[in-house]
Design a protein around this nucleic acid. Structure first.
Lengths: 208, 208
DNA sequence: TGGCAATGTGAGTAATCACTCGCATTCTGG
DNA sequence: CCAGAATGCGAGTGATTACTCACATTGCCA
């Protein structure tokens, strides 16, 4: 039974000055989170790192979790925006190319603030609103499902939704693991080639 | 900079009575961890849930993290034992069957205490010795690499190590995600079939 | 059977840290 | 231009909780 706490921001900044403050706080949060890890993350340090009063921090975020949640949401938002935009565009490409583009975009999305990404995924407990990190996946799955449905006639699959689940999960895991274990692999074209092969062979389309 | 703490057990139980105590403590830890989540996990509650003095707990584990680390190690050990034993045996089977067996074993391994598994993977920060949850993967990768190497002549792959990385990561992620999102899928034979297809098609062997 | 090692016991403390108290200053829209 | 709203400012407290203090009892081997 986990205590549930409100994690929505307390109030929105209205003036520009306040927006700047909030941005400063978020940026400082990211720095502190990366530097200290989730355990060592204290609101007091965030405030002083941001150069604002602890009081100001609590004016906008009701508690510590809300702060981390905001950070996480921002991060997910960035990655999401990057992926979804591209996903819409690839529906015109030949399948093999589409696959490659999506995989490369996934890599690119993971390259945004990889250190923050690491802490958020490895150390932040997936509890309450902090579980929202998964919504990114859900959206991605849905988009890929659609893509597979539309082109099912040229593919060797029976159930687009199931296949989308397998493929999204696999690719995400591969990229994710690579980022955490050995980021340099992501520059190695062989990894991308093999990942493409994994997908295209499964789908039964000619390799790119 | 995360503070590092000793996470090795303080001393080993010598008499049977002591072994029983330690087991009780570990079992209680698991219960409390599942019930309260990692945040709510307090050593005092563990002690009282185990029906032993807090003092006894600290006689064997120097701190909270060591306790969780022990739990995690035990869990990894169980899963690991299950998988590795089987991995050795499949080297005689036809490839398609071997693939299926390994996938089914992976599912079986994840079915051991799934709730504890969830908490350990979702909430326990991967810091210090707690990062050891990954050693399981490393061992698995190595074994699969060997398997692929031995049978490379019948497979459509160039680099067994790279391919092992892709396949292990994918399968683990698929099973893992399924456990967390919708455990009932694991009873659906279609999921297993598709996972097998993903692997066999990539390897270029006839579907089982 | 006696002596030594191993074991078990709970109240209390010290430290940490999330979060709250009211008031002066700055902006903005009428 | 002014009135009401928005903003910014730390020291301190209350709660939580990991961990420590010494001694009686039990098991084991000589």
């Amino acid at each position: 039974m986990n205590r549930q706490v409100k994690t929505t921001p307390r109030k929105r900044p209205r003036q520009d000055r306040a927006k700047a403050t909030v941005d400063t706080i978020l940026a400082a949060s990211a720095r502190v989170l990366v530097k200290r890890g989730f355990d060592g993350f204290t609101t007091n340090e965030v405030a002083s790192a941001a150069g604002v009063s602890i009081r100001s921090l609590y004016q906008y975020y009701p508690n510590k979790e809300a702060l981390v949640a905001a950070l996480l949401e921002q991060h997910v938002e960035e990655m999401s925006a990057m992926l979804m935009g591209e996903l819409a565009r690839v529906s015109l490409l030949p399948m093999a190319q589409a696959v490659r583009v999506v995989i490369e975009m996934t890599i690119k999305a993971h390259a945004v603030e990889p250190e923050l990404h690491r802490v958020l995924t490895e150390q932040v407990p997936r509890v309450g609103r902090l579980a929202r990190i998964r919504e990114l996946d859900v959206l991605g799955h849905r988009a890929v499902t659609e893509l597979l449905k539309v082109r099912q006639h040229e593919l060797a699959i029976r159930d687009p939704e199931l296949s989308a689940f397998l493929l999204c999960t696999s690719i995400e895991a591969i990229v994710h693991r690579a980022v955490l274990v050995a980021p340099e692999w992501l520059r190695d074209p062989r990894l991308v080639d093999e990942a493409c092969a994994l997908v295209t062979r499964y789908l039964g389309v000619a390799d790119g």
